[in-house]
Structure formats: structure tokens, C-alpha cells
Design a protein around this nucleic acid. Structure first.
Length: 1020
RNA sequence: GCGAGGGUGGCCGAGCCAGGUCAAAGGCGGCGGGCUUAAGACCCGCUCACGUAGGUGUUCAUGCGUUCGAAUCGCAUCCCUCGCACCA
């Protein structure tokens, strides 16, 4: 029968569903003792790190989870791997005899689904295209997707669940839920009330994207333009402007160069107006020589938190969004400030405000300070202002005063002269503010000054410090003195999908205190205790703990759980998904309990035991047993790029809320998926749907490709051609297996009843090739087991599938396959390989295994190494035969002859004795001491030089070889080659003669070059 | 820029942590041969260079270094990927 995955897979899916094969429960009393387990606990096989205690039936438990899918769109083949990795592990542990729980639920919290629905409802083309073309939603079902739950439900049922079931994932579906379920919310409520009580939540201010049209915060997903925009934290330097009538002259008097602290900042005088100048380089405040304002733009005089400010009209609105009371007193044009003098709050100096069209009134405050020594822009602008007397006069500015403005250097930078801006401009021959290279010059100066610039003497306590090291400190210090303020601004224009402008708003919010020292320490312990796979990710966990600040954990809108003490807010999606694995253990038994009874006490009793509350709910205590049995999570399979957030939160919350015995056992990070070499993208339609792939190749092929083409943490690349190759490989495997299974039936009669064969079986004589193959099987089992324990799906499947195929090729060449013993061997090997491959290709292996033995592979158990079948000597002997074959072939090829006779000479006895001495000298023999020992023997001493050469050469052979050193001296070379002579004759179509060196037919004098493990050869 | 990880033969990818059996697994592709009416499938061999005896030479991003010995250890340089938050 041809390999027909669709038919096979459908059958098994049905069987699993009907029997509830993957619905796992803690053992009931009745189960205890009645298990017929088959493992004699392999002592040679890596022992499984046993996780939590388990009552009952003698089985270990394994609890494996994966981040629940977020159904804001369909499922593609990249997702398929994410969920298949834990499935493979789950199946492996089940074969090892564990009681395994692999649950799944649906994450629908937050705004992505709501956003997707809104885009659909507003008829957005791109969204329609994604739904219709990429994910194949039928036209007439689109309306089902018009509500968030309808949308989620559709993709859960029609995409995720259907595909995951088609892939044969061994999920306990009784436990599924969504994060919007009432009972789940009760669980999250318990979690946040507990954290709140423990003081790990804190109220504070936080910048957010705010749509000025919808008058509410929006997420990155809601943006039409400016998704890349970042918050920029501007420093506002509060220059003072004394009355509107001030002229330049009266400012000149009190100019002083003492520029120390006593005249600094402080409270503005009653008639003073604050002109806040926005800058990203607060440390340049002592280099300010003048300021600029756009004379043609709209500005306002406004009351800001009780002070009078002069800012751009737009800035007044922004400031109002950033926690300030703003009321506009008067609308004025920028020209009002032109020609005025304003006082630097740090130096106390008065500087002149010049008109400039390059000032963007729409950015920050719309007024900027000028630091020509350190800003190429300002350098050029000042030069241009000096040159443009006419314009200055037009604004009533005394050109002499402008000419007097001199750059002031306040930062020393290596590689630049006194005025870095000047150097940067002159190096590039820039002489106009329109020169595009000005951007690069500015970048250059800014970067170098930041990293290597040293503040000059007038900076007092900061003098001599590198900018990078003290900028923040300096900024804070001046802020405290009232000289500085701050405001946020985007790096670029940001527009909401509704069309409204988005601005930075500062809102009150609740933070999780991930920088709490005690909490950090517990989390570090959790990291130290767990397995990090691959191990080289561990560093990143520690690092993230140090780096994480407070995390704002609530949102103003979206799906999810309300903040218990302030229901206006919703707990944010990453924050409501940190310990939900605990919820899996009880999810399927919560239906009986009304949500309102799932209160604080209920969960306290459940998670902390009967002593934790005064009147524990019996039902909670019953559920506690489920939780106790399954927890902790043994492995969480997630993605490496989630380490800085989700995985870290997962660890933090476990570390805080549960005892260390319930902390995660391990985390495996998964890599990303590519499609034909480039990133998948649902909006571009550059995805492959699992349903299509399964239909075309079969689920086993999809699984095998995903798990065998790279290790889980590496990126994989779905290439249709490669997937096709994988399908062909499985097909070949299937055909071979089937031949063997069918053939066996007829053989059975020929060999009277079959059945009775066994290693000790009377009629069955296993020859050395059979035993060799069985020995190889043991090595493979050990290798696969080790790999599976480390989640190395690729290494495991490579070993059992491809590399073992190599051994089989050799075996087929070497042996007479018509022998009953050969068929028995092949059958035995097939049986074991089906079990080893069962986690990867469960459909195919179960089917074949059942046909072969009467029961599915998944019921058979994971093979264990049989030490009696390991035979290093046999493996070494086969290697010698194989090398001899290669050597003869090489000689034939190089000489271009077609030999009639191949003579093989085995090294003389005395050489063998030398070899034994060399081997006896240990894994790192040195020539000198071996020679000493050898020369004690008078027979050998006679051979002098010859022995010396031999030892030198043999030392090389032996060095570093550990595992098979005993075998090396134990092999019977003559016997080995004689047994192989028929094989060699067939290979070369020539007569093969084997001689000991001492007693050889040796027409070409070659015998003497024979060495132990390296026979001499002569062909003619 | 900062943090983490990485650069292996035509491609994908083992090996590196625990230096010697490494010209370097396996897969794919390519070439030659077998089987077949033929194609496919399947089987065998070759696939860094040179070589009429199993060999020799030069390779594991680049350059130094440690060592009897380095793809494997150290340093420096160049390049790539991921993350840099309030978002799943």
C-alpha cells in the first residue's frame, strides 16, 4: 500500500479524539499499582531529572506549556513549529512513561483584536486582503468577524484549533479557555490583589501615545503613521524674560562672568516670563550665546502651573497633555520675542533672541537656544545671522550686537579644536544652512561629544567629567533647582488610524516594581535554578533583571481583566499572562463553581493551602490537589525574543507568588521562521497555511521538516523544495518498513510459526553483522535520548532517521538479507526506530508499529539501551572492514587498475605486542616512555629502529582515543578480514586473500608495511 | 550606541563548552556508474587541490598569540542576527 498520509492521519486523529488519549489527570486511587510499566529504568540512559513529587501510580509527571496563541489573525506555518516543539517533548516524556500534561488556551487580552475588528469594520483594504486572501476567510463569514469575540472565535476554531489538531498535537483540550473568561479574570484579580498587598505595585506617571481626536491613549497598532516614532525626553531650559518692554541695553549691565550658582534659577520674579528652550543636550547650557524664535509662527503667553510661559501655541496644548495646568492668556506672534534679551537660568547671562525660519514651532516649545561652539547648525546659523544685517535691522535688532556674539566652548573633545562645530563644518566645506551634509556633521559632533567630550572648568562639580557619565545627573540637579523642566516630544509626526494627531501624553498609571531589590533577588534565584535551553541564553535573563525598570501594567481600554481597585483600567496583556500555567491545572474543573465565589479566599486556599484562610472552601482544597500534582511547569517552550519581557515576567511572578519548589523547571527559547529565505508576513501574503501544507504533504512531513531542519532555538526556513524532499524521505521509510512488515508474514510460515525467534532463540543464529547493527542501535538510542532530554529535536531525529539509515545501507551491503536472523534483526531495529521517531512523526510510526507488533508506538515506550547488545569490538571490526574497503577502492582508483586479486596482510605478532604496550600507556602516551617499556623485551630490542618508527606511528593512532581502547587490542584482525572476504570479493569482483605478515604470499613486498589496525594491501 | 548571541567546505547545518581518531557528521544540490524500454524511485561511488598504492598540500570570517598539537582556548579587527520596553 502506498504511503497515504491523509488516510492514515485521519484515522489516528479520530482514534485519539474518541479515546481522549491526551486528556491527563493526576492518578486516581484506583490507578495505583495497576500500571504495567515496561521500563526497567535504564541506568545507562540519562536519568530524567525528576520534577515534583508525585503521589500515586509510580509515574513521574511532566507539565509542558507554550505561550497561548493570540488569534488576531490566522495561523501560518511559523506558528506551527512553535506548538509542535512542546508536543514532541510531551510525546517523548509520555514514551518515557510520564503522565504528561500539555494544555493550551487563547490569549485575547488587549487591543490587537479590537483594532483588527475596527479595521475590518471600517473597510480597510489591507485588512480585508489579509483576511480574504492570506487567511482565506470566506466572503459570507466576514460578518461573523465584526465583533471582537466573533473575530477571535473564528480564528480559534477555524484556524488554530483545527490546524493544531490536524498536526496531531497531544493537547488536553478540556482545559482550553480565553483570557477574557470571567473565571480567568477572577484568577488574575487574585494575582493582582496579592501583589498589591505585598507592595509590588506602585502608582506613577508615564508617557503614552495619545490621540488628540479620540481623546484617548492608543497603541502602536493603532497608528497610521509614525509607528517608528520614539519618545524624546527634552530638557526645557527656563530662560527668564523680564517684561515685554525690555531692551537689549538694560540686560547688558548685569552681565557677569562669575557664572556660579548664586544667581541661578530659582523662582521667577513676578513680572518675569519663562521662555523654555527645548534641548536634548542639557549639558550645553553654559555654551549658550543667543536664542532663536520663528517670527512668523503662532506663540502664546500662557499660565502654566502658575507661571507665565512663552511657548509655541502647539506646545501649550502638548504641555496640557503632560500633567500641567495650562491656560492661554494671550496669543502672540513669534516676532514679539525677537530682539529681546532672556536670562540664562544657569549662568545668569542675558542673551539676545534672533529671528530664524529654521526653528520649527511645531516641535517641542518652539524656542531654541543656540550653542554655536558645539552645534554645527548653530555655527552656520550664527554666521548667517551676522551676514544678514538687513534682516536683523528689519526686526529692529542692532547688528553690532549680533556681531559681538562669539561662540563659547564648554566641552573638550579629542580630535577637535576649541570649537568642534567649526571643525566639523570646515572639514566638510559646509557654508550654508541648506547643506544636507549638516545633518551628518551634527551627528558626528553630538556623538563624539557625548562619548568622549569633557566638561570645562566652569561646570564646577561636573568639570572634567565625560558628558555621557554626568548628563543625567546634571539635568536632575538643575531640575531640582528650578532651572530646568522637561517635556516629551515624538521624533517624528504620528498620526492615528482615525486621522487625528497623536501627541505624547503623561498619564497616571500603575507600575509593577520589577526593580525592587528583593524581588530581583528572588528572580535571580529562579533563573539560577532553572534549565535554560540553550544554555547560552541564561546570561540574557540575568542581564534583563538588572535592566528592567518599573513596568506600567494597566491600559485605559482593551479586552481583559479590570484592575481590582480601579475598574476604569484594564490589566495589560503581558501582565495578565505570567502565571496562567497554574490556571491550566484547574481550568477544566472550574465550570461547576460560580465566578463570584472565586474570590480572594478561594484562590488563597487553592494556592496557599487550608491554613492560609480562616474558612477554606472545600472545592478549592480539592482543586489544590490538581495544582499540587502538576506544578511546577517543567518546561516552558517560548521564544528567545520574549526573554526581555514575557519570560522575565513569567519568572518574576512565579518567584514572588509561589514557593521555590513551584518555580519553573526550564525554559527553551525558540527561533524564528523564514519562508523561502525571507521573513513571513501576513500583510504581504508571504505565509504558508498549515492546512495547505498538511493537505499537500501530510502532517508528519510538516512536523518532521519543522523539527528536523534546525534545532528549536535556531531559525528555520520553510522551503517548499526541502519540504518535498522530506516527504520523499518519509515515503521511502514507509515503503521499506512496509516491505519488511508484509514480508515477515510470509516468512513466518516458512520458519515454522515465526514468533519463537529471539536473541536467545534456538534456531536463530545472529551473525556478526546482525550484532553490529544491534550495537549501532544501542548507540543511537543513547544519543537520541540524550538529545531529547536537551530538546535537541534535530540532533535526535538526525541520529535516528538519517544517520541510522547510513548504518542500514552498510548492513544491506554487508550481509545476506535472506537469512531469518537478518529479517529478525531488521524487524527489531525497525520497531525501536519507530518508537524513537514516534514523537516526531506520530501518525506514521503508530500506524507501522501497530501493524508490526499489534500496538501503537506511543503505547510501546521509549527504547532503552541494552548493554549486552553494545559491542565496541564488533563496531571497531566493522570500521576496519569499511576502511579496508575504502583503501582498496582508493588504490584501484589512483592506479586505474581492475584487480583480479586483493591481498590483505595483517601485522606481525611482534607489532601487535608493541601496540599493546602503546595502548597500555594510556590515552596520551609519550613516545619516550613507551620505547623504554618496549625495549625491555630483548626480541623487540633487536629490531631497534623499526620498533622506534612503529611506536611513533602507533602513538598517533592511540592518542586521544578513549572509548574503544580495550577493543583496539581485542580485535581479531585476521578473523575479521577473513569473514569479510566474501563481501570484499563482491565489492571488487576479485579474489581476496588474507595473510598474516609472517606467513604471506607477498609478490610486491608489501606485507612488512602492515601495522596493527592498518593492514597492508596489495592488488594485482 | 548599549545588551545578548553568532560567523564552518556550492547551499542548509554538526563539531567548539571538556584542544589530538577533523579534509571536518548528516541532509540537499552537482557529477559518474548500476537498475529500468524510458523517466522517476532505488542502489553504489565521487564532489578543496595535486597524486598511476591507501599519500601529500592548503582550509573552518581576518590577524596575532597560547600549546608538542587549535575549527575548538586567549586577544584584536571586520561582518551578521535578535532585543533596547510599556507591544503581542
Amino acid at each position: 500500500m502506498d504511503y497515504d498520509p491523509q488516510a492514515i492521519e485521519a484515522r489516528w486523529r479520530e482514534r485519539w479524539a474518541e479515546a481522549g488519549t491526551y486528556e491527563s489527570d493526576p492518578p486516581r486511587e484506583a490507578d495505583v499499582g495497576e500500571d504495567e510499566d515496561e521500563d526497567e529504568s535504564g541506568d545507562d540512559v540519562d536519568s530524567d531529572e525528576v520534577t515534583g513529587a508525585n503521589a500515586g501510580d509510580g509515574r513521574e509527571k511532566t507539565f509542558v506549556t507554550v505561550p497561548y496563541p493570540y488569534p488576531n489573525g490566522g495561523m501560518h506555518v511559523g506558528h506551527a513549529r512553535t506548538y509542535t516543539v512542546p508536543d514532541v517533548y510531551a510525546r517523548y516524556r509520555r514514551l518515557q512513561g510520564d503522565n504528561v500534561l500539555f494544555p493550551l488556551a487563547w490569549h485575547i487580552t488587549g487591543t490587537p483584536i479590537i483594532g483588527a475588528v475596527e479595521r475590518l469594520n471600517s473597510g480597510e483594504e489591507e485588512q480585508l486582503s489579509i483576511l480574504r486572501d492570506t487567511y482565506g476567510v470566506p466572503e459570507n463569514t466576514l460578518q461573523e468577524l465584526e465583533t471582537p469575540m466573533g473575530f477571535a472565535r473564528y480564528f480559534i476554531e477555524e484556524h488554530y484549533k483545527r490546524n493544531l489538531q490536524a498536526l496531531g498535537l497531544s493537547i488536553d483540550w478540556r482545559r482550553e479557555f480565553t483570557t477574557n473568561d470571567e473565571r480567568y479574570s477572577k484568577f488574575v484579580t487574585w494575582q493582582y490583589e496579592t501583589l498589591h498587598d505585598r507592595g509590588l505595585l506602585e502608582k506613577g506617571l508615564n508617557p503614552v501615545n495619545y490621540c488628540t481626536n479620540e481623546r484617548q491613549p492608543v497603541t502602536t497598532h493603532d497608528l497610521l503613521e509614525g509607528e517608528e516614532a520614539e519618545f524624546q525626553d527634552y530638557t526645557l531650559v527656563e530662560f527668564g524674560w523680564k517684561g515685554e518692554g525690555s531692551t537689549g541695553s538694560d540686560g547688558g549691565d548685569d552681565e557677569d562672568d562669575r557664572n556660579d550658582g548664586d544667581s541661578e534659577g530659582g523662582e521667577p520674579e513676578a513680572d518675569e516670563v519663562i521662555v523654555p528652550m527645548a534641548t536634548l543636550r542639557p549639558e550645553t547650557v553654559r555654551g549658550v550665546t543667543n536664542a532663536y524664535v520663528d517670527p512668523g509662527a503662532e506663540y502664546v503667553l500662557a499660565d502654566v502651573n502658575g507661571e507665565r510661559w512663552f511657548v509655541a501655541a502647539t506646545a501649550a496644548e502638548k504641555l496640557a497633555l503632560q500633567q500641567r495646568d495650562v491656560s492661554v492668556i494671550e496669543e502672540v506672534s513669534g516676532e514679539r520675542l525677537v530682539g529681546e534679551r532672556v536670562e540664562n537660568p544657569v549662568t545668569g547671562e542675558d542673551v539676545l533672541v534672533l529671528p530664524a525660519t529654521f526653528v520649527d514651532a511645531g516641535n517641542a516649545t518652539g524656542v531654541v537656544m543656540s550653542v554655536p561652539a558645539h552645534s554645527p547648525d548653530d555655527w552656520i546659523a550664527l554666521a548667517e545671522a551676522k551676514a544678514d544685517a538687513e534682516r536683523m535691522e528689519r526686526y529692529g535688532i542692532d547688528t553690532a550686537e549680533v556681531k559681538e556674539i562669539e561662540p563659547r566652548a564648554i566641552i573638550d573633545v579629542e580630535g577637535f579644536g576649541e570649537f568642534p562645530a567649526k571643525n566639523a563644518v570646515e572639514e566638510r566645506n559646509i557654508d550654508s544652512s541648506n547643506d544636507p551634509r549638516l545633518v551628518e556633521a551634527t551627528q558626528d559632533v553630538y556623538n563624539r561629544e557625548f562619548h568622549t567630550g569633557v566638561l570645562s572648568a566652569e561646570y564646577g562639580e561636573y568639570a572634567g567629567e565625560v558628558v555621557e557619565d554626568v548628563r543625567e545627573e546634571l539635568r536632575e540637579a538643575y531640575r531640582e533647582r528650578g532651572a530646568f523642566d522637561a517635556m516629551y516630544e515624538f521624533t517624528e509626526e504620528v498620526v492615528c488610524r482615525c486621522g487625528g494627531a497623536v501627541e505624547v501624553s503623561i498619564q497616571e498609571t500603575w507600575f509593577l516594581r520589577y526593580n525592587d531589590e528583593a524581588w530581583m533577588e528572588k528572580t535571580r534565584e529562579a533563573v539560577a535554578d532553572m534549565e535554560a535551553i540553550p544554555e547560552n541564553t541564561r546570561e540574557q535573563y540575568y542581564h534583563t533583571i538588572d535592566w528592567l525598570e518599573e513596568w506600567p501594567c494597566i491600559r485605559n481600554y482593551g479586552l481583559g481583566t479590570e484592575l481590582p481597585w480601579d475598574p476604569e483600567f484594564i490589566i495589560e496583556p503581558l501582565s495578565d499572562s505570567t502565571i496562567y500555567m497554574a490556571y491550566y491545572t484547574i481550568a477544566h474543573r472550574l465550570d461547576e463553581i460560580p465566578p463570584e465565589e472565586l474570590d480572594r479566599d478561594f484562590f488563597d486556599a487553592l494556592f496557599y493551602g487550608p491554613e492560609a484562610v480562616s474558612d477554606p472552601d472545600e472545592r478549592a482544597l480539592a482543586l489544590r490537589e490538581e495544582w499540587n500534582y502538576w506544578y511546577p511547569v517543567d518546561f516552558r517552550c517560548s521564544a528567545t525574543d520574549l526573554i526581555p519581557n514575557h519570560l522575565m515576567f513569567f519568572l518574576y511572578h512565579h518567584a514572588e507568588l509561589f514557593d521555590s519548589t513551584d518555580w519553573p523547571g526550564g525554559i527553551t527559547g525558540m527561533g524564528m521562521g523564514l519562508l523561502e529565505g525571507s521573513a513571513m508576513s501576513s500583510s504581504k501574503g508571504h505565509v504558508v497555511l498549515p492546512s495547505d501544507a498538511i493537505e499537500r504533504y501530510g502532517a508528519d512531513t510538516v512536523r518532521f521538516f519543522l523539527l528536523n531542519s534546525s534545532e528549536p532555538w535556531q531559525d528555520f526556513d520553510w522551503r517548499a523544495e526541502r519540504v518535498g524532499d522530506t516527504r520523499r524521505q518519509l515515503e521511502r521509510f514507509w515503503n521499506r518498513a512496509e516491505e519488511l512488515i508484509d514480508g515477515d508474514a510470509s516468512d513466518a510460515e516458512a520458519t515454522d510459526g515465526g514468533e519463537a525467534v529471539g536473541v536467545g532463540g534456538e534456531r536463530l543464529e545472529l551473525d556478526h553483522t546482525d550484532r553490529w547493527l544491534l550495537s549501532k542501535l544501542q548507540t543511537t538510542i543513547a544519543e537520541a535520548t540524550r538529545a531529547m532530554d536537551d530538546f535537541q529535536t534535530r540532533a535526535a531525529s538526525q541520529a535516528t532517521f538519517f544517520r541510522f539509515e547510513e548504518h542500514l545501507r552498510w548492513y544491506r551491503r554487508r550481509t545476506d538479507l535472506d537469512r531469518p536472523a537478518a529479517r529478525w534483526t531488521l524487524r527489531t531495529v525497525l520497531e525501536a526506530r519507530l518508537e524513537l521517531l514516534a514523537p516526531f512523526v506520530p501518525f506514521l510510526t503508530n500506524e507501522l508499529h501497530e501493524r508490526l507488533t499489534g500496538r501503537p508506538a506511543e503505547d510501546a515506550g521509549w527504547p532503552t539501551v541494552d548493554p549486552d547488545l553494545r559491542d565496541d569490538r564488533l563496531e571497531l571490526e566493522e570500521r576496519l572492514v569499511s576502511r579496508l574497503t575504502d583503501d582498496v577502492r582508493d588504490i584501484v582508483e589512483v592506479t586505474g587498475t581492475d584487480p583480479e586479486t586483493v591481498r590483505v596482510y595483517v601485522a606481525a605478532d611482534w607489532k601487535q605486542r608493541v601496540f599493546e604496550q602503546v595502548v597500555a600507556a594510556g590515552p596520551d602516551p609519550d613516545v619516550g616512555s613507551v620505547m623504554g617499556a618496549v625495549m625491555d623485551n630483548p626480541d623487540l630490542r633487536e629490531r631497534g629502529n623499526e620498533v622506534n618508527e612503529l611506536v611513533t606511528s602507533l602513538v598517533d593512532v592511540v592518542r586521544g582515543r578513549e572509548s574503544d581502547r580495550e577493543a583496539m587490542t581485542a580485535v581479531d584482525e585476521c578473523g575479521t578480514y577473513e569473514r569479510a572476504s566474501d563481501f570484499l570479493s563482491r565489492e571488487f569482483d576479485a579474489a581476496v586473500e588474507v595473510y598474516p605478515e609472517e606467513d604471506a604470499v607477498d609478490p610486491a613486498d608489501r606485507a612488512e608495511s602492515a601495522q596493527p589496525l592498518r593492514p597492508a594491501i596489495h592488488i594485482e
